[in-house]
Computed example of a mutant assay.
Amino acid sequence: MSNTLPLAMLIELAQNKTDDATRRLGQLQRAQISAAEKLELLIQYRQEYCDQLQLQMQDGVSSSRWRNFQHFVGTLDDAIEQQRAVAAQADTRLALGRSDWQSNKRRLSSFDTLAERVKQQQAQLANKREQRASDEYAARQFRVRMIAAAE
């Protein structure tokens, strides 16, 4: 019984760590999805802006408007590159978070397996004690009958 108390504490600690890792993983997944959506939105916005300019160029575009377009697209390209970096960091953090979660889950599973083995060993010991007590009782009953028959 003294073995099970520290094991129960280890299981509880491992469960808490796994729960924390699960929450962190959820946050990391949301952050990764958000970063990817923002990147996609910037790329889509750039494409729409370029499409609009293409339509306007059919009617002719002034040089100042062309420079403004180039400047704006350059700014969008910079924002896209920055968002790609953010998305890549979010992907990396998510992969690390997933690895941490898996590690905690394996640790918890190991403790659960160990606890199950301890439980099985205790059950086997209890069964052996019960069998021994039953055998001793049967042997005593046999001796009593033998003594009674001999008298």
Results as ranks from 00 to 15, higher is better:
residue 1 M to S: 12
residue 2 S to G: 06
residue 2 S to W: 03
residue 2 S to R: 05
residue 5 L to I: 10
residue 5 L to R: 15
residue 8 A to L: 15
residue 10 L to I: 02
residue 12 E to D: 12
residue 12 E to P: 01
residue 13 L to Y: 11
residue 14 A to K: 12
residue 16 N to R: 15
residue 17 K to M: 05
residue 18 T to H: 13
residue 18 T to W: 00
residue 19 D to T: 13
residue 20 D to T: 02
residue 20 D to W: 05
residue 21 A to Y: 03
residue 22 T to G: 02
residue 23 R to Y: 08
residue 24 R to Y: 03
residue 25 L to W: 08
residue 27 Q to E: 14
residue 28 L to D: 07
residue 30 R to Q: 14
residue 30 R to T: 08
residue 30 R to V: 05
residue 31 A to N: 15
residue 31 A to Q: 15
residue 32 Q to N: 12
residue 34 S to E: 15
residue 34 S to Y: 09
residue 35 A to Q: 03
residue 38 K to W: 00
residue 43 I to T: 11
residue 47 Q to M: 08
residue 48 E to N: 09
residue 49 Y to A: 09
residue 52 Q to W: 11
residue 52 Q to V: 04
residue 54 Q to R: 15
residue 58 Q to K: 11
residue 61 V to I: 15
residue 61 V to L: 13
residue 62 S to I: 00
residue 64 S to Y: 04
residue 64 S to A: 09
residue 64 S to M: 09
residue 67 R to S: 08
residue 68 N to M: 08
residue 69 F to L: 02
residue 71 H to G: 01
residue 72 F to Y: 14
residue 73 V to P: 04
residue 74 G to L: 11
residue 74 G to Y: 01
residue 75 T to M: 09
residue 75 T to I: 05
residue 76 L to W: 01
residue 76 L to N: 07
residue 77 D to R: 03
residue 78 D to Q: 15
residue 79 A to P: 01
residue 82 Q to C: 00
residue 83 Q to D: 05
residue 84 R to Y: 01
residue 84 R to C: 00
residue 85 A to Q: 13
residue 86 V to E: 14
residue 87 A to P: 02
residue 88 A to L: 13
residue 89 Q to T: 07
residue 90 A to W: 02
residue 93 R to H: 06
residue 93 R to P: 00
residue 94 L to G: 10
residue 94 L to M: 13
residue 95 A to L: 06
residue 96 L to T: 03
residue 96 L to Q: 10
residue 99 S to R: 12
residue 103 S to N: 13
residue 105 K to E: 03
residue 105 K to Y: 11
residue 107 R to V: 01
residue 109 S to T: 06
residue 110 S to I: 03
residue 112 D to E: 11
residue 113 T to E: 13
residue 113 T to P: 00
residue 114 L to C: 03
residue 114 L to M: 13
residue 115 A to K: 05
residue 116 E to I: 00
residue 117 R to D: 02
residue 117 R to V: 03
residue 117 R to C: 06
residue 119 K to A: 10
residue 120 Q to M: 11
residue 121 Q to G: 07
residue 121 Q to F: 05
residue 122 Q to T: 08
residue 123 A to E: 12
residue 124 Q to W: 09
residue 125 L to S: 07
residue 126 A to G: 01
residue 126 A to V: 03
residue 126 A to N: 09
residue 127 N to H: 06
residue 127 N to T: 06
residue 127 N to W: 05
residue 128 K to F: 07
residue 130 E to S: 13
residue 132 R to A: 12
residue 133 A to F: 06
residue 134 S to K: 13
residue 134 S to N: 11
residue 135 D to R: 15
residue 137 Y to P: 00
residue 137 Y to H: 11
residue 138 A to K: 15
residue 140 R to N: 12
residue 142 F to C: 02
residue 142 F to D: 07
residue 143 R to S: 03
residue 143 R to G: 00
residue 144 V to I: 10
residue 145 R to K: 14
residue 147 I to C: 07
residue 147 I to P: 02
residue 148 A to L: 13
residue 148 A to H: 14
residue 149 A to Q: 06
